[in-house]
Design a protein around this nucleic acid. Structure first.
Length: 441
RNA sequence: CGGGGCAUAGCGCAGUCUGGUAGCGCACCUGCUUUGGGAGCAGGGGGUCGCAGGUUCGAAUCCUGCUGCCCCGACCA
C-alpha cells in the first residue's frame, strides 16, 4: 500500500479530549474518529488492527471447538421479557420503538437470543456439547463513556455461549474457553492474568476476568508474581482432553480484582511475590447454569429421556477494547509499538527521496519483492522531509521500518530499523528481503 | 446521576470582562529554496463564532432557553 494513496489522517498535536495514552495515540495515528460520546468510526489503520485481533480470536475459538454464527444487533424485547431481564437491565439498555410501536432494543448482550436459537433446534443431549460464538457490535448506554474505545458505549464483542447437559460438561466447556483465552491474549502480545470475578448482571457462580497489567488500568488488582511466569498452553493442546491441570495451575495462585480482594489471603503470599498494580479487563468468562435455559425452556432430553434445562456459560472478549489495551501495554514517547501479530502492516518502507530515480527503483523493487512474498507493506512514497517520515512511522508503530535513502540506494543498501528497540542495521537489498520475508514467515 | 468545565477554520488556541465588518500556530493549495529525525521564505484558500430566541443602529462578545462534548466521582466489558 502506498502511503500517498492511503487514508491516514495523523495528527501532530494531541487532541485535548484524550486523557489516556491509547486514546491519544489512536486519534493521533488516525485509527479512529469519535462520532458521538462513546461511539467511534474505525479508519483504515485502526480497521486493519481490529481485523487482525478478530482473526486471532476466531482461530482460537475455532481451535477450542466453538462455531461462529452471527446474531443481529437489534433484538425484540419479547425475549428479554421472557428471561426477566427487560426490566432488570436498567438505563444501560438502549430501548427502541419501531414504526408499529413494537419494543426493540440494541443488544447489550445475547444470552436470550442464543438461548432462543438453541431451544428451537436442539432437543437431545446427543447434540451436546455445543458452543456458538459471534463477533458483533453491542451497545451499552454507559452513564459516562471515557478513555476512547476502552470504555465506549458501542463496542465490538466476541461472545461465545456454551451448552452442556450438566455441570461437569459445562465445567469442561468453561475450561476450554479458559485455555483459549490464555492463548488468544498471549498472541496479542499481552500477558493475561485470570482473576476470580463477580458475576454481575449476567449471573452465575463461576467466573474469571482476564486482566492485563497497565498503569492506566481501571481497577486495582492483586496477584502472585508466579502467575506472570506460567507457560501459555501450546497450539497442540488437546481441547477434547482433560484441561483441568492447566486450569489448576492458573488458578492456584492468588489473583483478585479490587472487589474480590481478600487482604488476609494476600498476606499469605510471600512478600516478594506480591504484585499490587492496576489492570485492564480484556475478557470475562461465566458459568451460569440454567439461569436462562430454565425460564426460557431451553430443554434437552437426557439419557433417561427426561427433559432438562441445559447448563450454559458465556465468554466475552472486547476486541475494540483489546486494541486499546495492546497500545497501553506497548508504546513509547514516539508512538505505538505494535506486536507483530496485530500490526496493521508487517513493515514500512520509507523512501527518503521520492522522485530520485535510483532511490525509487530500489524502494519500489523492494516493496514488490516483499509483497510477492506475502509481506504486508506500507510504502511511504510521500514527498516529505526525512524527519516527518520517521515521526509518522514511529507514531503508527509498524514493527519494522526499512529506510531507503539516496546514499544507500547508490550502494544497493537499505537500513532496517526495529521499532521496539530502535536498533538499526544496514543490509544489502537481498539480505534485507531474505531477512524480512523470513521474519514474517 | 451528583460536581466542575468547554463549544470561534481539519487540529490546538486567542479574541468575550469593556459590543463596532474574526485572528494566531499547525495542517491544506501555488511557487522558489531545502532535503537522514515533525524545514525556510513568499503568496493563497478555508469559519452561518454549537443551535434558537431576545436586547441593540450594530452581537463571537450582553440576556434567556436548548444541544453537544470533556473532566472528577459513583457505575461498568
Amino acid at each position: 500500500m502506498r502511503l500517498s494513496r492511503y487514508f491516514l489522517p495523523i495528527l501532530k498535536e494531541d487532541p485535548k479530549e484524550a486523557e489516556i495514552v491509547s486514546h491519544r495515540l489512536m486519534l493521533r495515528a488516525g485509527m479512529i474518529r469519535q462520532q458521538s460520546a462513546g461511539i467511534y468510526s474505525w479508519l483504515p489503520l485502526g480497521k486493519r488492527v481490529l481485523d487482525k485481533v478478530n482473526a486471532i480470536i476466531r482461530e482460537e475459538q475455532n481451535r477450542a471447538g466453538a462455531q461462529e454464527i452471527m446474531m443481529p444487533t437489534i433484538q425484540s424485547a419479547d425475549l428479554w421479557i421472557e428471561s426477566g431481564r427487560y426490566n432488570d437491565y436498567g438505563q444501560e439498555m438502549l430501548r427502541i420503538k419501531d414504526r408499529h410501536d413494537r419494543a426493540l432494543l440494541y443488544g447489550p448482550t445475547n444470552e436470550e437470543m442464543v438461548t432462543d436459537i438453541f431451544r428451537s433446534h436442539v432437543r437431545s443431549y446427543r447434540d451436546l456439547p455445543l458452543n456458538l460464538y459471534h463477533l458483533q457490535w453491542k451497545f451499552r448506554d454507559e452513564v459516562r463513556p471515557r478513555f476512547g474505545v476502552m470504555r465506549s458505549r458501542e463496542f465490538l464483542m466476541k461472545d461465545a455461549y456454551s451448552f452442556d447437559l450438566d455441570y461437569e460438561g459445562a465445567r469442561a466447556a468453561y475450561n476450554r474457553m479458559f485455555v483459549a483465552y490464555l492463548r488468544t491474549f498471549s498472541r496479542f502480545g499481552l500477558q493475561p492474568i485470570p482473576m476470580r470475578a463477580e458475576t454481575g448482571p449476567i449471573g452465575g457462580d463461576l467466573s474469571h476476568e482476564f486482566i492485563v497489567l497497565a498503569d492506566t488500568g481501571e481497577s486495582a488488582v492483586y496477584c502472585d508474581r508466579t502467575l506472570l511466569d506460567l507457560p501459555i498452553p501450546g497450539e497442540d493442546t488437546d481441547f477434547m482432553g482433560d484441561l483441568s491441570p492447566i486450569i489448576e495451575a492458573w488458578t492456584g495462585a492468588y489473583a483478585a480484582t479490587d472487589d474480590m480482594h481478600d487482604a488476609a489471603a494476600f498476606e499469605d503470599v510471600p512478600q516478594d511475590r506480591r504484585v499490587s498494580a492496576r489492570g485492564i479487563e480484556i475478557g470475562h468468562i461465566f458459568y451460569f447454569g440454567t439461569k436462562y435455559s430454565a425460564p426460557m425452556r431451553a430443554l434437552v432430553a437426557n439419557q433417561e429421556g427426561e427433559m432438562v434445562p441445559v447448563h450454559m456459560g458465556s465468554y466475552g472478549i472486547g476486541p475494540t477494547r483489546v486494541v486499546a489495551a495492546i497500545i497501553e501495554a506497548s508504546h513509547d514517547d514516539a508512538g505505538i509499538i505494535w506486536p507483530k501479530s496485530v500490526a496493521p502492516f508487517d513493515l514500512g518502507v520509507v523512501n527518503l527521496k521520492p522522485g530520485d530515480e535510483r532511490t525509487d527503483e530500489i524502494a519500489e523493487g523492494l516493496v514488490v519483492r516483499l509483497e510477492r512474498a506475502g509481506v504486508e507493506v506500507l510504502y511511504d512514497d510521500v514527498d516529505q522531509r526525512a524527519g516527518a517520515k520517521f515521526a509518522t512511522m514511529d507514531l503508527i508503530g509498524l514493527p519494522t521500518q526499512v529506510v531507503v535513502g539516496p546514499r544507500g540506494a547508490a550502494a544497493g543498501e537499505v537500513e532496517v530499523k526495529d521499532r521496539a528497540t530502535g536498533a538499526k542495521e544496514t543490509l544489502s537489498l537481498d539480505e534485507a528481503v531474505n531477512r524480512l520475508v523470513h521474519e514474517k514467515g
